[in-house]
């Protein structure tokens, strides 16, 4: 009989939740890519139809969703690096938990200025320009 796994070092903790988030963000990005190829394909229909669909990306609601998309891509990219570190770095598995918190830190450091630049126009459009 194989011994039962000792404890729950992985299950229900950083390792499991980053795995869940990797799957969820991956599926979201995949479905967005499908929509994005379709909207970009409108450049072969007419300049006007492309401009009209891109205008929806500039509305406040879709702008906030874009921020979510950028966040999903950034997390998926950073966690992908963590997965590769676990696979190829001999100490990767031992430091997988610390690496999860490291990518959370990098995520915040990148997303704060990213959100500022992405939402600048929307915030100004709703609340008026600061200048």
């Amino acid at each position: 009989m194989p011994k039962a796994p000792a404890g729950t070092l992985y299950r229900g903790r950083e390792g499991m939740w980053s795995w869940v988030a990797h799957r969820v963000t991956g599926v979201l990005i995949f479905f967005f890519l499908f929509a994005h190829v379709l909207d970009t394909a409108l450049v072969r229909v007419s300049a006007d139809s492309y401009d009209r669909v891109i205008d929806t990306y500039k509305t406040p609601l879709v702008n906030v969703m874009e921020l979510g998309l950028v966040g999903a891509v950034l997390f998926h990219a950073l966690n992908g690096l963590r997965v590769m570190a676990i696979d190829f770095w001999d100490k990767g598995a031992r430091f997988q938990r610390q690496m999860t918190w490291a990518i959370v830190a990098v995520f915040i450091v990148v997303m704060v200025p990213g959100a500022y630049f992405m939402l600048k126009h929307t915030v100004e459009a709703i609340f008026g320009s600061a200048s």
Binding site: Y50, K58, E66, M118
Partner: peptide, 12 residues
């Protein structure tokens, strides 16, 4: 999305 006005400047 981020540089130089982001998506606001994107068009045909």
């Amino acid at each position: 999305n981020i540089l130089d006005g982001g998506v606001q400047r994107v068009n045909f």
